[in-house]
Design a protein around this nucleic acid. Sequence first.
DNA 1: TATGAATGAGACTTCATTCAT
DNA 2: CATGAATGAAGTCTCATTCAT
Lengths: 218, 218, 218, 218
Amino acid sequence: MSKGNLLDAIIAQTKLTKKQTDKQQKIVETAIKLFAEKGYANTSTSEIAKAAMVAEGTIFRHYGTKDNLLLSVILPFIKDSIPTMAEEVFGEIMSKNIGCFEDFLRALLTNRIHFINENREIFQIVVKELLYSDELRKDLLPFFTKNILHQISKVINLYKKRGELIDIPSSTIQRMIFPLIGGYFVSRFVLQPDNLDLDEEAEIGNLIRFIMDGLRKE
Amino acid sequence: MSKGNLLDAIIAQTKLTKKQTDKQQKIVETAIKLFAEKGYANTSTSEIAKAAMVAEGTIFRHYGTKDNLLLSVILPFIKDSIPTMAEEVFGEIMSKNIGCFEDFLRALLTNRIHFINENREIFQIVVKELLYSDELRKDLLPFFTKNILHQISKVINLYKKRGELIDIPSSTIQRMIFPLIGGYFVSRFVLQPDNLDLDEEAEIGNLIRFIMDGLRKE
Amino acid sequence: MSKGNLLDAIIAQTKLTKKQTDKQQKIVETAIKLFAEKGYANTSTSEIAKAAMVAEGTIFRHYGTKDNLLLSVILPFIKDSIPTMAEEVFGEIMSKNIGCFEDFLRALLTNRIHFINENREIFQIVVKELLYSDELRKDLLPFFTKNILHQISKVINLYKKRGELIDIPSSTIQRMIFPLIGGYFVSRFVLQPDNLDLDEEAEIGNLIRFIMDGLRKE
Amino acid sequence: MSKGNLLDAIIAQTKLTKKQTDKQQKIVETAIKLFAEKGYANTSTSEIAKAAMVAEGTIFRHYGTKDNLLLSVILPFIKDSIPTMAEEVFGEIMSKNIGCFEDFLRALLTNRIHFINENREIFQIVVKELLYSDELRKDLLPFFTKNILHQISKVINLYKKRGELIDIPSSTIQRMIFPLIGGYFVSRFVLQPDNLDLDEEAEIGNLIRFIMDGLRKE
DNA sequence: TATGAATGAGACTTCATTCAT
DNA sequence: CATGAATGAAGTCTCATTCAT
């Protein structure tokens, strides 16, 4: 782990993604499933090989290292989750002059929930390893915050100027929203991965309502 | 893991807690430190033995199994964190007729932050393994929710009757508060375990303010 | 290794030497370089393939076996080093009625040093594997001694008859000269392969002087 | 290999030599036999384990690494072979005012031949790995030459002053004697390890005679 | 002819656990 | 109680070799 810079790793990784063999595809799929289920450290390469119906050597021919296999699983997800969010979501939202902060939040949450829902297992892996691995945490966390927080800051400041948000420092606001949304995702997609038949619309509505108005009556 | 029922394990564990040898004490201390630092799966018993300056055999003489050592570390914490909270905190708070919901929240948060702060490493272990280990999650999660949520429900209902809280279902409110507070704890004590010199008073203040009033101006 | 008789292998090898593809050429060159550098056992075929910019399969298409590739590298050298020496060198030298034993020695040494210098890497491989591989030693050593020693014997006997050499058994003389010259080559070309800028003329002079007169003063 | 300084390794190694278990003893013995026979790279730890009638894990419990096992075999030999020679042999010889250079040589050769004969297999290992492993060569060769050559220099100079040796530079003399003796040892103990029933007395006599007087008649 | 994906045997190593002392 | 040597199953990884393309 911690091959120096994660960004470099992402780029290198991308370049290596020539054509994926069928077996490669199968290996990654299986690895995702098992890592998500039992955690990286508790999943052996022989287990993966067996489940993917592939010789164990094949895994190492393509990924060289178990660590590398993990990265091959995680990095594309990171790559997609951050810049996409940064550009698509924020950019789109901001440029289209979406009305109030609530609308922005709703758009953001809906977008992210769909993304995570489609990559639920990888999200589970990332969360688990983020907590579990010192190395990964050191690599990924700054990368996350640097990219996301900066975007959020801009949005918050914009709406603060418009007078829609309370007048406390953006950093404080971030420290409130971030764990709330993060915690929501974690508890929904990682802690209770089976219990996924909620009414999404209503769920998001409640979340937004809570973020905006809190619990106090009136 | 998953030696049947966790509650049974707790009870059995309690009974076993006769007199702890010096060595036992040292073993548990060291295990806590290492599990918190590198995760259960990445910590070998020989490592623990070496760091505790104890023969590897000694660990197994007392705990029989590595899994068992983990439980011996986690269970007392769980045992303390749930019932204590249930009885001490809630009981105390409720009986003393503490005024508004805000005061209740402040008392609760302060109390829990201190508790976790004093057991920071074990908290890290519990969080990590909770996410990481399928088994543990299956055992602990229901136990958690059953005990805590029930108490919280009572409180929320009380304050809702008093008209201090918005009129949405308690379960919904829980689903908002829980991740927020949990996320706060996790991000503060697990994700950024070094960065612990915040202004606690102010931090709690912000948290409460956000919980109560959300982000909307006015 | 030890495909029966090495002589047969040499002959078979010779027959196989039809036309070498460019790739074949490249493979052998690369194998020589790598075997010399890191030893046969520590050089993988994939390494060779990569360095030769050839697919790994190509190596096996041509040489069938890694062992076989080693032989393809070694045998031509052996084939050249022995008979050439036997015929060219000895024959030439002897027939030309070269004067004294010293002159013969000088001619021999000069000739061999040039030959080894031009095939330094293969010489390194042969020496290393000769010591390292039981099999190869069993195959090559008798082959060497049989061919070389026989020639040397004739020469020594000739000069002994001429009264130029001391009167001890030829076999004893051989046991003296052989390690000296061999040791000289090994230490010069294998042990200190970088340090190759000696004054060759002087070096050979000293060697001969020592062989002829030893260390005693007067 | 190449744990920085070999001298340090020797010292560290010595300290680690607490009490050897029976199994440890067996492991080292077996390793010596197999390494000598087939070379380090061609001997697998499982082979050693099987031959030593020991679980493979036991090897690693004691030596941690295959490399380390090799060092555990080689270093005591080195440690004994160099200083012993330096102090015992040279010291003794020089101080006792042993008569002529021939006597010195005879004493030295006899001593070393006995030492190597008693450690024949380890000597084989050292020679083989010295040629085979770049790392080891870089570590050991300077160590060898520094310790041995310095001693030899003193002796040679002494006898040169006494007028017993020819008047050419000591370094040149060394470059003659060293390969001769080294080559003799290698060819006798490594190349033809089976053929060990020579008449040692006569053998040494011839060697000395050659070293002193060379091949020239008269 | 050349490729390179795939293989599986086997290499080195780790580790929880047992047991004689 | 405590020790630490011993174990062997299992883990990660390497590599010569095969084979369909």
